[in-house]
Amino acid sequence: MHHQESLTTHSSTSVRYEHPLNERVRTYLRFEALFRQMHHNAKMGDQWQHQLFFRAIFDTLELLDQIQLKAELVKDLDKQRIKLKQWLNIENVDQNTLLKLLDELEKRHHELLSAPRLGQGLREDRFLCSIRQRFSIPGGTCNFDLPSLHHWLHLSEEEKSADITRWMEQVEHASAALSLWLRLIRDSGHYIEQQATQGFFQDDAPDAELIRIAIETQHGVYPMISGHRSRFAIRFLPFSEEGEIPEKLAFSLARC
C-alpha cells in the first residue's frame, strides 16, 4: 500500500490509499516517498530527524542502483507532453492552463536531460560513503560506531544546512519531475462513490495506472488491494480484532 494520507472534512475524516497497477508506478511511488522523507527531515533541526534524512538518502541510492529513474522519467514526461499537445486548440479546454502544463513539462524534461547521472554526487561524497554501511546495521549509528556522524550532528546549523542543501541538489530535478508526472496521473482520475459488499469490491480499470481509495476512518477498516494492468480487487479488513465489516460499505474510488 502506498501514499496514505488523511483528508479532513467538516463532518468526518477520510484516509486515502493508493495502489499501483504496474511495476513502473510502484517504483515511482517508492521514490516519491523517499524524496518526501528527505525533504521533510532536511528541514528539521533535531539530530534524530537528521538520521532519518540520511537513511532516506541511502535507501534512495539503493533504489537508484536498481532502477534507471532518470531515463524512465524522461520517457514518461515526453509521453505526457505528446498526450497534452493533442488538446491544443480543442474547444472547451482551458488553453492557458494547458500551455502552463506544457511549459512545466518542457522545463522538467530539459532539466533532467541536462542533469548529470542521478545521485552520482551522493555516491562520491566522502562523508556519506564513510557512514552509509553502518546505516544498514540495526542500531549501527550510535556515536561509538560512527564518531564522524556524531561530529557532524554537532556542527553549526549553517554548516549542516550547507551540506544538506548540496546533497538535496543531487535529486532536486528528479524529485520535481516525478512530482509533476504523478500529479498529472492523479489529476486524471476523479473520485466516484462506490459500495463494497461484505467488504469486497472488484472491477476493471482499462488504461489506468493507479487506483486511489478514500474511506472514512469511522468505519474502522483498511483496504487490501490487489491488481495488475486493468483488473483489480479490494478487500476491506477490520483494524481491530473486535471490528466488523458491514454488509454494504461506502467508499470513494478513482481510476487514474
Rank of each mutant, 00 (worst) to 15 (best):
R55L: 15
K83S: 03
M1H: 10
Q49I: 01
V93S: 13
L73F: 15
Q80G: 01
S12A: 06
Q47W: 09
K160P: 08
Q170F: 12
L102V: 05
E124Y: 01
M1S: 07
L64C: 11
I225T: 14
Q202L: 01
V25F: 11
Q120R: 04
T27Q: 08
F236P: 03
Q198R: 11
T197P: 00
Q37E: 15
F144I: 06
L155D: 04
S188H: 08
S230D: 08
D59H: 12
Q120E: 09
G199A: 02
N92D: 11
C142N: 04
P206I: 03
R134E: 05
S136K: 06
L29M: 07
G199F: 03
V221N: 14
F127I: 09
T97Q: 11
P147Q: 05
G243N: 12
H190S: 13
I164H: 11
G220H: 04
R212M: 14
E241F: 02
R16T: 04
I185M: 07
F35G: 02
H40P: 00
G121T: 06
M38C: 02
K83I: 00
M44K: 15
K70P: 00
R24K: 10
L84N: 14
L118G: 02
V93A: 09
R26W: 03
K79R: 13
E124D: 08
E111M: 06
E72D: 07
T9A: 10
L7R: 08
R81I: 02
I213M: 12
L29N: 10
S12Y: 08
P246M: 07
T197G: 02
L253P: 01
F201V: 02
G139K: 07
L249S: 03
T9P: 06
Q49W: 08
H228L: 15
K85T: 05
H3P: 00
L7H: 14
D76L: 08
S175C: 04
E106C: 06
L128A: 03
S156R: 09
F200K: 11
S136T: 15
A233W: 00
T165D: 13
L77F: 10
Y28R: 02
Q37R: 06
F127T: 14
Q47N: 09
L99T: 13
E169T: 10
L182G: 13
R55T: 06
E244S: 12
H109K: 05
E18M: 14
G140W: 14
K75L: 05
L153S: 12
Q4N: 09
K107G: 00
Q95L: 02
E72Y: 01
D204P: 00
G45D: 15
V74S: 01
S6T: 02
R255I: 15
H40R: 03
E159R: 07
R16G: 04
V15K: 02
K107R: 08
R183V: 11
A115E: 07
S130Y: 03
G45L: 11
W167V: 12
H228S: 15
Y191L: 09
E106R: 07
L112G: 05
D59K: 05
R24P: 01
S188T: 04
Q195N: 08
R16V: 04
D204M: 07
K248N: 05
H228A: 08
Q120F: 00
A115R: 11
